[in-house]
């Protein structure tokens, strides 16, 4: 019930309308051929190249939305003292946080589904309807990445202020989405910065890897079990954080 009410409140937020607008815009750009990838000066309109590109854009947008939707749920509850009326009814703090995290995850996945519906439109308009069926497991696979971002943001919002949690979440999300680029930087940079990049890559989730594996499900119909298990391990870790971290009453 707590999760349901928190979810209903989330989907009424103005940020949710931005999801529809952004999804429609990305779909329009890719479906009408307005988006082109240029290789060696030649414009590429091939489905096999454009589809993963669209998936990357959609996933990055979904991750950003997951941060926006998950960031202020817990701080707002404490600020408005709505938590007090829950706690005095015998609901434990950890159970309450889990319920709010579920609301965050559900809202983030719904937003991800809206973005993914744009991808489905692109698959149909690019005359590859047979791959539409693969979009479903691909959505579920890439959804793990969205769950990670949502859980991570929720975890941080328990411990830090809204602003600090937002900044850290965005940094984690960007490193995750641009994981290969950080790997490249790690290779280039030496000394302390190289070690920092190495540590970041070791600790933070590879959101790009999850999204690539989800893309391969549609384009190559292959399933990467290893990346999925690593992603699920991050889900487990952040879920543990939701239970263990505590926020003090003002």
């Amino acid at each position: 019930m707590i999760a349901l009410i928190a979810f209903k409140e989330k989907i009424r937020r103005k940020v949710f309308f931005a999801v529809f607008a952004l999804a429609a815009l990305i779909t329009l750009i890719f479906s009408t051929g307005a988006a082109t990838v240029t290789i060696n000066g030649e414009s590429v309109t091939d489905y096999k190249i454009l589809m993963p590109t669209m998936l990357t854009v959609m996933n990055a947008a979904s991750c950003a939305m997951a941060v926006a939707l998950s960031l202020n749920t817990i701080p707002k509850e404490y600020e408005r003292h709505t938590n007090q009326l829950i706690f005095i009814r015998g609901v434990s703090q950890s159970r309450y946080r889990i319920q709010l995290a579920i609301a965050n995850i559900t809202a983030s996945l719904v937003s991800h589904a809206i973005f993914f519906s744009g991808l489905a439109v692109y698959i149909i308009t690019s005359k590859n309807p047979s791959e539409l069926l693969w979009a479903v497991p691909s959505y579920m696979y890439s959804g793990i990445g969205i769950v990670i971002v949502s859980l991570c943001t929720t975890c941080l919002s328990i411990v830090f202020s809204e602003m600090a949690a937002g900044v850290i979440s965005v940094v984690i999300m960007l490193i995750g989405v641009f994981y290969p680029m950080i790997e490249l930087l790690k290779g280039i940079a030496g000394g302390l910065s190289g070690k920092i990049f190495k540590a970041l890559l070791f600790v933070l989730p590879n959101l790009h890897g999850i999204q690539s594996a989800a893309g391969c499900l549609i384009t190559e119909h292959t399933f990467d079990l290893h990346i999925m298990f690593v992603a699920l391990f991050y889900v487990y870790l952040f879920a543990l954080g939701i239970i263990l971290f505590r926020r003090k009453e003002d």
Binding site: M1, I2, I5, K8, E9, R12, R80, H81, T82, Q84, L85, I86, I88, R89, G90, V91
Partner: peptide
């Protein structure tokens, strides 16, 4: 307990709000 600055989900009616807290309170 009645708090000093009560806040309830704005999209619910009074009855639904009561239903919510009744459910939370089992």
């Amino acid at each position: 307990y009645s708090p000093d600055t009560p806040y309830f989900p704005p999209f619910l009616t009074g009855y639904e709000t009561m239903e919510y807290y009744a459910a939370v309170g089992k």
